[in-house]
Simulated assay, not measured.
Amino acid sequence: MSDVMLCLSGVEKTYNKGETGEVRVLAGVDLALARGEMVALVAPSGAGKSTLLHIAGLLDTADAGKVEIAGEDMTGLSDRRRTALRRQEVGFVYQFHHLLPEFTALENIVLPQLADGVARKTAEERARGLLDQVGVGARAGHRPSAMSGGEQQRVAFCRALANSPSVLLADEPTGNLDPGTADQVFGALEGLVRDTGLAALIATHNLELAAKMDRVLRLDQGRLVEAG
């Protein structure tokens, strides 16, 4: 079995900006992301990193090229199959936690598992285990409004990993936190990635955090290049 969990080959994306004409955001992106690997994605705002993450995570489709997740080609799949694979194989984390405010931390992690057919008791056990792993087990019964920003983001990490995905995609996951909290939260994320062996692609402006990852990739004129 291949260790490559996410593979992009020749991925292209162009947007029609009306009066300004077409803007080619991705111009043939190639990427291979291995099991247990953390890769930083750095790029200026508007360079296309969010577009790249959305295509990699099956939230958007490329104009050309191929996306493979856990060895399966995503090209030409039905919407139903893409949705199922996205729920099972991909975890998303954003700059803002997007937790459901009316539910507790535990419930926020249980819900995606229930949607995937997991029994409630099993889902709750996994949720508690994940919360303990990132150091917020004592906050399991609290709603997001009763937690700090760092605690909320740790819960968001746990929710992203609830269904044991193969790939984690994160878009500025510490961008809304102060530097000290960002370091702590990144440490929790790194622990989850290393312990579970999933593949993680993390977009960040924080070059200090990027330097802690296995590789740093830069999006330059629509292509990925290795950064020093």
Rank of each mutant, 00 (worst) to 15 (best):
M1K: 14
V4K: 02
L6M: 11
C7D: 15
G10D: 14
V11S: 06
V11A: 13
E22D: 15
L26F: 04
D30P: 03
A32R: 13
R35M: 05
E37F: 06
E37N: 08
M38A: 07
A40S: 09
V42K: 02
G46H: 07
A47L: 03
L52Q: 01
A56K: 05
L58N: 10
L58K: 12
D60F: 01
T61H: 12
A64T: 08
E68H: 08
I69F: 00
G71N: 01
D73S: 01
T75Y: 00
T75I: 00
R80C: 11
R82I: 09
A84N: 13
G91F: 14
G91D: 09
Y94S: 04
Y94L: 03
Q95Y: 03
H97S: 12
H98F: 01
P101W: 10
P101K: 07
E102V: 15
E102D: 09
A105P: 14
N108P: 14
I109F: 04
I109S: 03
V110H: 09
L111M: 14
L111Y: 12
L111D: 10
D116C: 15
G117H: 01
G117T: 07
A119Q: 15
A119K: 15
R120F: 08
R120G: 13
R120H: 12
T122D: 15
T122Q: 12
R126S: 13
R126L: 06
A127I: 01
L131T: 03
D132H: 10
Q133G: 07
V134K: 04
V134A: 04
G135T: 15
G135W: 14
V136I: 15
V136H: 05
V136R: 04
H142P: 03
P144L: 05
E151N: 03
E151G: 01
Q152H: 06
Q153I: 06
Q153D: 14
R154E: 06
R154V: 05
A156V: 11
A156Y: 05
R159N: 02
L161K: 08
A162T: 04
A162C: 01
S164A: 13
P165T: 10
S166H: 15
S166F: 13
V167M: 07
L169M: 09
L169Q: 11
A170H: 10
P173I: 04
T174A: 03
G175D: 07
G175T: 14
P179F: 08
T181S: 04
A182G: 05
A182T: 04
Q184H: 11
G187E: 02
G187P: 00
A188T: 00
L189F: 09
L189R: 11
E190G: 02
E190L: 00
V193N: 04
L201S: 07
T204A: 09
T204S: 10
L207Y: 06
L207D: 08
E208L: 12
A210V: 03
A211C: 05
L219N: 02
L219A: 00
G222A: 10
G228V: 08
